[in-house]
Amino acid sequence: MSATTSDKLADVTGIDPDAIEHGATIKSVYVYEAPVRLWHWINAFAIVVLAVTGYFIGSPPPTQPGEASANYLMGYIRFAHFAAGYIFAIGLAARIYWAFVGNHHGRELFTLPLFNAAYWKEVLTMLKWYAFIIARPSRYVGHNPLARLAMFLLYFVLSLFMIATGFALYGEGLQAESWADRSFGWVIPLLGQSQDVHTWHHLGMWVMICFVILHVYAAIREDIMGRQSVVSTMISGYRTFKD
């Protein structure tokens, strides 16, 4: 009974002394399973490609010399964008699948324990830690609660938005009645017109870039200053604890 409660609590707050206790000898916990890690790096790659090509779709490089038939620069840029978009979207779908079949850490991206006071308490703890108010944060096995908040809002919700707007725009090129138009075409009148969707999609890219900056910084900083490993965890899968 008590085990179940603490499991639940651990699920919510990321604090799992039990797990650390059990891993005391090696001081590490297996957190990210292989598919999650693989997905993470593929996804990171896709986002980089999407952002770079997306930027150039909005502001193309200087005019190419020679015959039109001898060049296909915008074509390649757009192809790379669409291909990476598919990888990004399919990756997210696979990742959602893994949320069901993988371990409980695999679900942290997609849910937020909004109504759990213990969760918000730990969010506050993390905020205090980042504001240099407290000297030591808690130890977290999965995502720390603040990271989880960022993951949910800035990664998961934003990704859904980018996929919906992205495929709506892609559907314009695929033409009416294409799968993309039928599935996502409704987004266009919802946001106004095609140009509005472009603008929102473009703004979404910048939000994603801001997220990436924060994500990378927080990960490296936690590695150095926090109480557990972060970057290496996404490579090995093991969260190691320093104390």
């Binding site: 193309p60 200087p62 005019t63 190419q64 039109a68 001898a70 060049n71 296909y72 620069l73 915008m74």
Partner: peptide, 10 residues
């Protein structure tokens, strides 16, 4: 074709 080729009026 000029769009796809990346050829623009600047």
């Amino acid at each position: 074709p000029h769009f796809d080729a990346g050829q623009f009026v600047e």
